[in-house]
Design a protein around this nucleic acid. Structure first.
Length: 686
DNA sequence: ATCCGTATGGTTTTT
DNA sequence: CCATACGGAT
């Protein structure tokens, strides 16, 4: 974290204490926005609001958890516990759990993730083509975010593809309601619809959440804005915190229109810019300001800090990708060699596109330096692992409906959406889980005898497996049990049938085997040779291990405490900071990114520039900007020109009007580093 | 028509 | 490196 000042600065104070009406805090990078939000929460409590009446909305679970943690330190655990700090989506879940009945949704509805949705769309649209199904998913999501249902979409469809998508959407809607399931878009869209049309409900919620704070406001999309508006009502007691210069999710539907509209729709809006930065040196901030100055401004804002100039921003010219990676490695080594307490975790290498990570990974491995690639999809996100986790979750908790749906359909066992729809309806009527409904006496009234047969068979199998999982301990037996299970459900065959490429299916199967080993190992009982001592680890049942999987996953996904170099996309780096940052591949075509088939509009370029701005402002002490002289394009290497953003940083037009002694010191250090750098570089080139 | 091989080229992603 | 696209072969 940045070194926080002992007290709030005047702008922060104003933002915290203004409770009189709608408020927009323009929080520049590193300006202490989380601090403002948490202090404002404390201020609201002081002003007489109940914790449960204060909502703070973020975009990611991680941000929400962090916010709650920070609030806890300020207002104490008791109050913090009741604060409504959550993501847009989990607020939607909470809303629908309590109000869903008004929409015919049972309390225990299921939430589908995007893989689930893809599967349903392929099924509903009768296509096994992933790309096609994904394009439907994309189109449908866009429609939903405009507030359209399938009828509206049908009318709005302007070409054949869209008309097909609209028809698929119709069937998709039917499936969702039959399964008593919603997708991520519904978590925002349905509450919005309900608030709009049900006055009683609207009043109730406006009285429940009396003050709303929104973090990363520049990332909201059109429907989130509408939801917010109906949530705060005419009283308009809210604070939006955001930075138009860090809006980098336009391609995902986020719109800075929402920032433009705010002062128009709320003329009494209080706008407070936070311009003092507590993160970066003067050189870094100057470069950032210069770059962003090329964008038309929505609100005037200029970052400054009183840390002094620090190291100048360095532009590093490289021959090609490999050379760039070598130089980055050399740079890290030389900065560490300079002494001080420079850790691996103090470094980040940031790039535009994921594939750029490869070369760096290779170079870091070669230099035996530890690193992590953030943003790369986790082992547990793979479809095959999610399938198996679905089964395990069902064993742990029979009433986990999404897990039930996943397990009952993987692999296909003659239980189709018709049957599941009926089962879902039945379960909804009697307010029981799908699994419970399975064994109900009166199920015969809702479902054909044949289907009941398959369902009962499935239920008995799950029951039996659960029993065995509970009573199997030790890794040997556990492995046998798990392999037996996979054989029973014929999962390997399922993989090979579901995948047209044999190679891919084989790699999926090998992931499955890894997963089995991973669980089995945790069941213990193995004789381990630990430093000459023979230790028999404690035995656990398969079911016990299954119970802890979600915890283990969340632990594995974190790992912020590890002392490793971070490799990350610029997008994923937003909100984070490192003492030393390397921006990789800052060349025309890559950053700003230019695709062959899409035109570079001014808006596009502006978003790319904001991306550059985000990258620059991640750095606390040193920033290196890499350019390539040649870059790989497919087979051959082509000439590459430095990004226009480099010129925009105006690194050479700097007139330093700081303490001359500071300047001298900086120069000396820079010279020393250059020497060390080129020495290290010469080394690696040997 | 379908399948397999090689060629080609490559954004960004949370819920 | 991996996914998709397209062309040649069956």
């Amino acid at each position: 974290m940045s070194s926080a000042p002992p007290s709030l600065n005047p702008a922060q104070l104003e933002a915290v204490h203004y409770l009189g009406g709608p408020c927009l805090v323009l929080a520049g990078a590193g300006s202490g926005k989380t601090r403002v939000i948490t202090h404002k929460i404390a201020r609201l409590l002081q002003a007489g609001y109940e914790p449960a009446q204060i909502a703070a909305i973020t975009f990611t679970n991680k941000a929400a958890a962090e916010m709650r943690e920070r609030a806890k330190q300020l207002v104490g655990p008791k109050a913090a516990k009741h604060l409504a700090i959550s993501t847009f989506h989990s607020l939607g879940v909470r809303f629908l759990r309590s109000e869903g009945a008004r929409l015919g949704l049972k309390e225990q509805f299921s939430i589908l993730d995007s893989d689930d949705v893809l599967g349903i769309l392929k099924d509903a649209g009768g296509s096994s083509d992933n790309a096609l199904a994904r394009s439907w998913q994309w189109t449908i999501s866009l429609w939903k975010n405009q507030g359209l249902n399938s009828d509206g979409a049908e009318a709005a469809a302007c070409n054949d593809n869209e008309r097909v998508a609209a028809r698929v959407m119709k069937r998709y809607e039917e499936r969702l309601s039959a399964y008593q399931a919603v997708d991520f878009d519904d978590l925002i869209g349905l509450p919005h619809q309900l608030l709009l049309r049900d006055e009683e409900c609207r009043t109730k919620w406006q009285n429940t959440l009396r003050y709303v704070l929104v973090d990363e406001y520049q990332d909201t999309n059109a429907i989130q804005y509408e939801l917010l508006k109906s949530l705060v009502g005419d009283r308009a007691m809210f604070t939006a915190v955001g930075d138009d210069d860090q809006s980098i999710y336009g391609w995902r539907g986020a719109t800075i229109e929402n920032l433009r509209r705010l002062p128009e729709e709320y003329p009494q809006l209080k706008v407070i810019p936070l311009e003092q930065n507590y993160r970066s040196t003067g050189s870094i901030l100057r470069a950032a300001n210069c770059v962003i100055a090329n964008n038309p401004k929505l609100f005037e804002k200029k970052l400054w800090s009183d840390f002094g100039d620090g190291e100048p921003v360095r532009v590093i010219e490289c021959d090609g990708e490999e050379h760039e990676a070598e130089r980055a490695v050399a740079r890290i080594q030389s900065l560490r060699a300079q002494g001080g307490d420079v850790q691996f975790k103090d470094f980040a290498i940031l790039y535009r596109a994921n594939h750029q990570a490869r070369v760096f990974e290779k170079a870091l491995r070669k230099a035996e330096m530890p690193y992590k690639v953030s943003g790369g999809q986790s082992f547990f996100d793979r479809a095959e692992i999610k399938d198996l986790c679905g089964w395990l979750r069902l064993l742990v908790n029979n009433d986990d409906d999404p897990a039930f749906l996943r397990a009952v359909t993987t692999p296909k066992r003659g239980i189709g959406h018709q049957t599941l729809g009926n089962l879902g309806e039945f379960a909804g009527k009697w307010k029981v889980s799908l699994y419970e409904a399975l064994f109900a006496e009166s199920l015969g009234t809702a479902i054909s005898a044949r289907a009941i047969g398959s369902l009962h068979e499935f239920g008995r199998y799950v029951n039996d497996l659960e029993y065995r999982a509970r009573n199997t301990t030790g890794s040997e037996d556990a492995k046998a049990l798990l392999m037996g299970w996979l054989k029973d459900i014929d999962y390997e065959k399922h993989l090979y049938e579901g995948e047209d490429s044999e190679k891919l299916a084989a790699s999926r199967w090998s992931n499955v085997l890894d997963f089995v080993d991973w669980i089995a190992k945790r069941c213990g009982g193995e004789i381990e040779n630990d430093g000459g001592l023979t230790v028999e680890t404690e035995k656990k049942s398969v079911l016990e291990v299954a119970q802890t999987i979600s915890v283990i996953i969340s632990l594995a996904e974190r790992g912020d405490d590890q002392n490793v170099i971070t490799l990350s996309t610029l997008h994923a780096s937003k909100g984070l900071e490192w003492p030393h940052v390397v921006l990789a591949g800052v060349n025309e075509g890559l950053l700003p990114f230019k695709s062959d088939d899409e035109e570079m509009t001014p808006q596009r370029l502006e978003e790319e520039r904001r991306l550059m701005y985000v990258g620059i402002t991640r750095a606390r002490q040193t920033l290196a900007v890499n350019t390539l002289r040649r870059r790989k394009k497919g087979r051959d290497t082509v000439q590459a020109i430095p990004s226009r953003f480099i010129k925009e940083m105006k690194l050479h037009e700097v007139t330093v009007k700081e303490d001359p002694r500071e300047k001298l010191k900086a120069l000396r250090e820079a010279a020393a580093k250059r020497a060390a750098d080129s020495a290290a570089q010469a080394d690696t080139q040997r």
